[in-house]
Nucleic acid binder design. Structure first.
Lengths: 232, 232
DNA sequence: AGACTTACTACACGGCGTGTACTTTTACCT
DNA sequence: AGGTAAAAGTACACGCCGTGTAGTAAGTCT
């Protein structure tokens, strides 16, 4: 690592740090190249040596944030014994909400609309994190399938999904995942997401005092409906 | 109605119409006073005779959109006989998704973050529509309560909610709504919202071919879990 | 030591919301 | 009918924004 590379890495880190602060403070729309440059004592144009455009900066931020979320969810899941699928699902869900409350603007950036006219690239860290989240949840639901599958509709086939999604799930070692389990997993995802999204955007706080309890109740109900016993 | 008032109303309508077009085209962030003025052949500053600020314009737009959503949901519900609570809930849910797909940017504007640093006023049409939606759904769930309430936790009291929420629900003629039903209603709201939010923000389309069927399955499951028979 | 690449500056352009000051049009009152 | 106050609209300016072009200074490699 040459001196130049070290400096470059350091500056890049400083730029993203300031941008993250702007994001956390005033939301995605407040991320400003000129603001960052001002805070760093640089010419606005100097940032362009590190990010070719503002959207590229935002893409990098989103990637980091999404990766952080995926890490958090996987860590929460893995803190619960493999055998306790219900507990792992609950941990996943509660970690989702906790992360969202800790990073509300990051939640908006990743799950909502980042910035007008912005289109994320097809295969960056954002996509990869998205796949980790979707795939991780699907595998959890697949673990619950022996019980959860009993009351699920059987008319689902892998042709209902894009081939890439299928491939991604199956090439993990061994276990076959039934297509109906994948469909169920997406519905579970939606259910875990809904209340959190409403809360983050201020639609729940005005109407109930303890959103945490509400969410927990719903997640316990969800786990029960999958035929799993919630952990103690 | 004087000539002046007519002209004013007409101009106001034209401004909001163009703003709505901007919104539908490129999202909330693309709404621009200067752009509107340009399209109308006016000086940018002339808009200020109609809306004191850009945020005020957006507030008006959001109000109209939210009211439209509330109207749509209530109309869908009322197209199903009062006795068929399961059918009414399904209609409500499907109308939510259909409206969201027809007005994706409106969905973002109402349920997401409109614009950086923007704070909606406490008691405008937006709040009123929000209450209609939340309240309408709560009353539907209350209708299902005799059956749905059996497996619901009983440790919910009205002290868990803001007094205003309680008052709003009870002063409708007669029927007492149990607090646990209100809690359940919020969870139902979250469940109806989650998959739609994921889909609108592009997280579902990449991973399954027929989101409509997925959503319908989940809603039928939801209605079944409330002890209701889905309509034929 | 010279050549090339990288980081950075200076300046400019067109976009944005909006403040101040002024002119024109309309509505109302005597 | 004429005068006046309010409303609608214009002109100009300021400070934000992303970013294009041109040129300079420092670091790296042969």
């Amino acid at each position: 690592m040459t001196r130049r590379e070290r400096l470059r890495a350091e500056t890049t880190r400083e730029i993203t740090a300031i941008a993250l602060a702007q994001l956390a403070e005033d939301g995605p729309g407040a991320i400003s190249l000129r603001g960052i440059a001002r805070e760093m004592g640089m010419t606005p144009r100097a940032i362009y040596s590190y990010f070719a455009t503002r959207d590229e900066l935002i893409t990098a931020l989103t990637g980091g944030i999404a990766t952080d979320l995926a890490d958090t969810l996987e860590a929460a899941r893995d803190a619960v014994p493999t055998a306790d699928t219900g507990g792992r699902l609950l941990a996943w869900a509660l970690a989702t909400r906790a992360w969202a409350l800790a990073n509300p603007q990051g939640f908006r950036l990743f799950f909502g609309d980042p910035v007008p006219g912005y289109q994320p690239p097809e295969d960056g860290p954002v996509e990869r994190a998205s796949r980790r989240i979707c795939g991780g949840l699907t595998r959890l639901v697949a673990d619950a399938w022996p019980l959860a599958g009993r009351h699920q509709p059987a008319d689902v086939s892998w042709s209902d999904f894009p081939p890439a999604f299928f491939a991604r799930l199956q090439d993990e070692d061994g276990a076959e995942i039934p297509p109906a389990a994948a469909a169920l997993a997406l519905r579970v995802w939606g259910r875990m997401h809904g209340l959190v999204a409403l809360e983050i955007h201020g639609h729940i706080g005005a109407v109930v005092h303890d959103p945490a309890a509400l969410y927990r109740t719903d997640m316990l109900d969800l786990i029960g409906s999958l035929g799993l016993t919630p952990p103690d």
